[in-house]
Design a protein around this nucleic acid. Structure first.
Length: 577
DNA sequence: GCCGTTTTCGGCCCGACTGTTTTCAGTCG
């Protein structure tokens, strides 16, 4: 469910953006930005806080607290509305294009009247942009590529965004009198990394009240169509939602049909045909007699096809049907299998919560161990020093075992430089329990150079995990150009785990890369990369689902292991000795 | 606008990279 904190955080971020776009004080804007992040990542729900409680959120002072209180009371912020009136919403949207910031967006608006991404593309095509101050041929070409990238990503929503909406809708529709079952289906149920639309399936004798409940929601901007079996709407945020209502007796067949994938369904139907049966969203039928053989539950339908229930995360026609027939479906890793988290941050660098708050939340998840891995000095903005890191280590040692006996590992997230080196020499690295190493710069090296730097990082005897290996951001940045097969081979050979970063913006490695890496004997760390308590608690479901999509079992994932086994792996002895 | 082992004013995450410049502005992590 979307938290009120995220909603308010987004408004404060918008306010900060609008301050910059209207030429306001940059420090003022930064202050609202900081507050936006802080509110979004705050562990307590705004809905349960009074004005005094709101004031205690770090980075929230008198002015911001008043705006939040105003929003909670009236659902409006007058100052925000005032700024909105000065800048068309499309101008802010333009700043989401990589390489286009507020200065450029405002210049385009002032000089050419451009107030949407579409208008900007048209202006570039008409050669009107080149020649503006600071915008030469190269810069314009970068903007054009940025537009392409954003529009490719923009058609689909992040899994987390779609899931928030779907869970809210399922809860609402389930409460409508007469609704007997309700669930989300589609690519969302398969937990694909991005989702084109949200499919909701429900059963009820009379569908009308369910359809009305969807149509009448305040966040519905547009009803695309509505009949007795299907209603389609578009939300204010542009996400399409389809609600289908089927008879209770056909729940299983309909859920299978609407969960897909298409390729999985086609293969199942082919199998049915060979056996003299027909499979549709209404059930599995005997072709000769027309008799319905199964439809009530998914398990029944799969069983009638001679198959065990196949988990939704595997239904992509990547061999799961064949594996099911051979009795070789993988025993997939689950959220409950995770015994710890190996890549997390605190407010010592860019995290929001102090170490103690993160540890308490981790212990609350039942973790047996937990690694704090704050940023290393080469990410200059983080201002890390040797002394700060050593002081944190002392605190971590002191807090070891104090949270329900949870073991605290002291680590760091190193920066892999363009040559594959990292922040500290061997003697300092040797002091850490665990080292994650990630790329945070030089994203545009050529394929050979990227491959070399990552292989060299794998060969570093102190690096245990390569963090977010391709560095892609689903809504913002393409992956680096790298020979992943060569990197996977190096990771397998050196005993370096590859991360499956659970942030819904990353999911890096992705499902197919995981499958390929596994063939090289690579082990994986499913890590939250949490920068706040909500991320620590919320991210891992996305990582685990992606691990399942990559066919990973418990044994493939090092943070399901016992601490003893994990420590042995972290010694990386094969390389060091 | 926020904040204080720099505390009621004066700083504020700091450096690299890119493409435009001829000494720098804008963007990004």
């Amino acid at each position: 469910m979307a938290r009120l904190n995220d909603e308010v955080g987004a408004l404060l971020q918008e306010y900060a953006d609008l301050i910059l776009l209207t030429g306001g004080n940059a420090f003022r804007a930064r202050s609202y930005e900081k507050a936006a992040r802080s509110v979004g990542g705050y562990s307590e729900d705004l809905a349960h806080l009074d004005e005094e409680g709101i004031h205690k959120i770090p980075g929230v002072g008198d002015s911001t607290a008043a705006k939040i209180a105003e929003y909670l009371a009236t659902k409006h912020i007058a100052a925000l509305d005032k700024l909105r009136a000065q800048v068309p919403p499309g101008v802010r949207e333009i700043t989401s294009i990589p390489t286009v910031g507020p200065k450029t967006a405002v210049q385009l608006y002032r000089q050419l009247g451009i107030k949407s991404v579409d208008e900007l593309r048209a202006a570039i095509d008409a050669d009107k942009v080149k020649g503006l101050p600071g915008l030469g041929a190269r810069a314009v070409e970068n903007i054009r590529q940025g537009i392409d990238q954003v529009s490719r990503a923009g058609r689909r929503s992040l899994l987390s965004t779609a899931l928030d909406l779907a869970e809210e809708l399922v809860a609402a529709i389930s409460e409508v009198p007469g609704c007997t079952r309700c669930a989300y289906a589609g690519s969302l149920r398969r937990m694909r990394e991005t989702v084109g639309d949200v499919d909701i399936l429900a059963t009820a004798r009379d569908s009308a009240p369910l359809m009305a409940a969807l149509r009448d929601r305040p966040d519905v901007a547009d009803v695309i169509g509505s009949g007795p079996t299907k209603t389609s709407v578009r939300t204010a945020k542009g996400l399409q939602v389809d609600l289908r209502v089927v008879p209770t007796a056909d729940w299983g067949a309909a859920l299978m049909y609407f969960t897909g994938s298409r390729a999985h369904n086609i293969k199942l139907r082919g199998r049915a045909v060979k056996a003299g049966m027909k499979l549709s969203e209404y059930g599995l039928f005997d072709v000769e007699t027309g008799k319905k053989l199964a439809s009530r539950t998914e398990k029944e339908v799969y069983a009638a096809l001679g198959l065990p229930l196949i988990p939704p995360t595997l239904r992509e026609d990547r061999g799961e049907i064949e594996a099911a027939l051979d009795g070789e479906l993988p025993d997939l890793v689950t959220l409950k299998d995770l015994r710890g988290d190996l890549h997390t941050h605190t407010d010592l660098t860019d995290g929001l919560a102090p170490l103690e708050a993160m540890l308490e939340a981790a212990a609350g998840l039942g973790y047996a161990y937990y690694a704090v891995t704050d940023h290393a000095p080469n990410l200059a903005m983080q201002r890390m020093t040797d002394d700060k890191m050593l002081a944190q280590r002392e605190r971590a040692r002191a807090l070891d075992r104090t949270y329900h006996g949870m073991r605290v590992l002291h680590g760091t997230e190193l920066n892999i430089d363009a040559d594959g080196g990292v922040d500290w020499p061997a003697d300092f690295l040797a002091g850490f329990d665990i080292c994650v190493a990630s790329i945070h710069s030089s994203f545009n090296l050529d394929r050979g150079a990227q491959t070399r730097r990552l292989i060299r990082a794998c060969e570093n005897p102190f690096i245990n995990i390569i963090g977010h290996p391709t560095t892609r951001l689903l809504d913002r940045r393409e992956p680096i150009d790298v020979d992943l097969d060569a990197v996977f081979a190096a990771a397998g050979r050196t005993g370096t785990a590859l991360e499956l970063n659970s942030s819904p913006h990353r999911l890096d490695l992705n499902d197919e890369q995981i499958m390929a890496a596994r063939r090289h004997g690579v082990r994986f760390a499913v890590d939250s990369d949490a920068h706040s308590v909500p991320q620590l608690v919320g991210n891992q479901r996305f990582g685990v689902a992606t691990a399942q999509r990559g066919w990973l079992g418990k044994d493939d994932v090092i943070n399901t292991w016992s601490l003893t086994r994990l420590r042995r792996f972290l010694r990386k002895s094969a390389v060091r000795e």
